[in-house]
């Protein structure tokens, strides 16, 4: 049984973030790949609410947002056709944010979340997965099997 100590603090704030995103967003980001790969370049197009390309938008990316290892990188500024290239440097979930101002000087922004793939299966990750699996799932299975087979008393 577990339940997180700070769970609720930012619980509703999540909803607020969703609302404010919807209310403030005045455009959209078109990602040319649904699952970009770490180290491989991909193209992003920034559009306003009328789906026109936005030039001069500042594009940032937040890797693993909301975690202890969160990191924000500045990607660059979109060109006049709204295009910008991004080479992900970290695998995992990332949030891309584009910010720009229009003629009325009001700031506009748009945000999209994307999952960045590992270029190849990570050896250290697979090792930990196997060790943990053998220790936990394997260990409990063997013990349970032994217990059921021998019909031990409580």
């Amino acid at each position: 049984m577990r339940y997180e100590k700070h769970a609720v603090t930012i619980f509703a704030a999540t909803v607020f973030a969703v609302c404010s995103h919807d209310a403030a967003a005045r455009g959209r980001l078109i990602l040319h790949e649904r699952f970009p790969t770490r180290g491989q370049e991909m193209r992003i197009r920034v559009e306003d609410e009328a789906q026109n390309p936005v030039g001069g938008a500042i594009v940032d990316v937040t890797y693993r947002p909301g975690s202890k290892v969160e990191r924000v990188d500045h990607v660059g500024t979109s060109s006049s056709d709204g295009m910008i290239t991004w080479t992900p440097t970290q695998a995992g979930i990332a949030t891309i944010t584009a910010t720009w101002s229009e003629h009325d000087q009001m700031l506009r922004s748009s945000q999209a979340s994307v999952s960045v793939k590992f270029p190849s299966p990570p050896a250290d990750g697979i090792l930990i997965m196997i060790v943990a699996g053998v220790l936990l799932v394997g260990g409990s299975s063997i013990r349970l099997f032994y217990m059921l087979r021998t019909q031990q008393a409580p």
Binding site: H6, F11, T14, G133, S140
Partner: peptide
């Protein structure tokens, strides 16, 4: 902990496949 192991695998696969950002903890 085995249950946690497989729950972690199930949930992380969903999170990654749908690029969901878990901005908060348990309740959200």
């Amino acid at each position: 902990c085995s249950f946690e192991y497989i729950a972690g695998v199930a949930i992380f696969s969903l999170l990654f496949a749908f690029a969901v950002v878990p901005q908060a903890h348990t309740l959200s």
